Structure formats: structure tokens, C-alpha cells
Computed example of a mutant assay.
Amino acid sequence: MKGGSIEVGEGRSPRKGGARGLSIMDFVLRIIAAVATLGSALAMGTTNETLPFATQFIRFRAEFDDLPSFVFFVLANSVVCGYLVLSLVLSVFHIVRSTAVKSRIILIALDTVMLGLVTAAASAATSIVYIAHKGNAGANWFAICQQYNNFCERISGSLIGSYIAVALFIILIILSVVAVSRN
């Protein structure tokens, strides 16, 4: 303290520290979102159930790949998980160099695309899960969840991770926009 003024520690401005904090939060949220999408893809991709019918030779089987919406869900969550893992490199770069703007803008654009992809996949799978639980009397589609309990529990549970990723992408985009606007 010289002459009534307060000095900020050795070349680090409070603004730079805040940007570094945003970058660290970005890194952590990307890891959580990657785990959520990986868990969703694995839960859906390994879902199947077989039920015996009348005799042991006749069986009914429900698998995720019987429905194209579930296949899209697994593929989309896998792509988004891969993107999130690859984007960790840029996230680490932003921790080291918190004033980088161009790479943050690229991340904002790519995050927005991945947000759209994971939202579309989760929405498509949600509509099928809803019909599996409730059926549709007008279309003569019966609810299958009374017979295939484990199948329905797993496909319903796999949606949770995907919707967590949607929420985290929204937060990531907002964090990146705040970081860019501060620079």
C-alpha cells in the first residue's frame, strides 16, 4: 500500500482471475456433461429384455435397436460425448490463457450445434418412451411397460443423463458468452 492506494498482486488483475475461474468451471462442466452423455449412451445401448411366451421356445424380445429413435439417441449421445472429450483440450487452453477470444467463439458455435443434436436425440427418445409408458389409444398402440419393466426403466433412466447434458450445454454457452464479453 503506497500513498493510500491498494496494489493488486503481481500482475494479476481481478478480471483475469474471474476469467480463469470461468474457464475452470467450463472444464468441470464439460467433464460432467461427457460422463452424462456417455452414461446415457451406454444405458440405452445395452438395454434389452426377453419375455417368455406360452412355451420356452417362443420368446418376445425388446431391444433398443428395434426403434430408430433409440439408435439415433445412442449415436447422438456418443458423438456429443466424443466432442466434449475433444473440447477439453480447448478448455485447458482457456485455463492457461484466459484472454483467448477466437477459440471461445468457436466453442460457442460448436457447443450450440451439440446442444441442438443432444436436444433432438433426447426429444425423439422421450416421445418413444412416453408411448411405451402410456400407449396411444387413437393409433391402437399399447403401452408395453407393464410387460417389459426392466426395459422401460433403463430407457427412461437413460434420458436423465441426456437432459442433464442439455442443461449443462446451456450453462456452458452462457459461461463462454460471459467470458468473451469480459475480454
Rank of each mutant, 00 (worst) to 15 (best):
I108M: 08
G135M: 02
A143Y: 03
G135Y: 01
V129H: 05
T99I: 00
L115F: 05
V118H: 07
S98G: 05
L115Y: 00
I128Q: 15
T126M: 14
G116A: 04
I155N: 11
G135D: 03
A109R: 01
S98M: 01
L159E: 12
A109E: 11
L88I: 12
N150H: 06
S158Q: 03
I131Y: 10
V129Y: 01
V96E: 15
Q147P: 01
I128M: 07
N149C: 09
L159W: 00
Y130P: 10
G138S: 02
I131N: 10
L107R: 12
F151E: 03
V92D: 14
F93P: 05
I128L: 09
S156Q: 10
L90N: 14
S91H: 08
N140A: 09
L115N: 04
L117G: 10
V129A: 02
V101W: 09
S103T: 08
F142D: 15
Q147E: 13
A100C: 09
A100H: 08
E153C: 07
L159N: 07
R97A: 15
L115H: 03
G157S: 04
A125M: 03
H94K: 01
V113F: 12
A143G: 08
V129T: 02
A121H: 02
Q146K: 07
I105N: 14
L110G: 07
R97Q: 13
G116R: 03
N149L: 12
S162P: 01
L115S: 02
M114G: 07
S98Q: 09
S156Y: 06
L88P: 07
G116E: 09
F151C: 04
A124H: 00
M114Q: 01
S156G: 12
G161F: 00
Q147W: 13
A122D: 11
G138R: 00
I131W: 04
I128G: 13
A109N: 13
S98P: 09
G116C: 05
L159P: 08
V129K: 05
K102G: 14
A137F: 08
L159Y: 02
A120G: 13
A122C: 02
Q146W: 06
A122Q: 08
Q147K: 10
D111M: 03
L159S: 08
I155Y: 02
V89Y: 13
Y163I: 04
H133C: 03
C145P: 01
S91R: 03
S123W: 11
I108V: 07
V129I: 03
G116L: 01
S162E: 02
F151W: 09
M114L: 04
V101R: 15
Y163F: 01
I155Q: 11
I131G: 08
K134A: 15
C152W: 01
L90Q: 14
V89L: 15
N150K: 11
A139N: 11
G161C: 05
T112I: 05
S127K: 10
L159G: 12
I144M: 13
I106Y: 13
G116Q: 04
L117F: 12
L107P: 08
M114C: 12
I131P: 07
I106P: 10
A120I: 04
S156D: 10
I144S: 10
T119A: 11
A137T: 10
Y130H: 14
V101S: 15
L159V: 06
Q146E: 13
V89S: 14
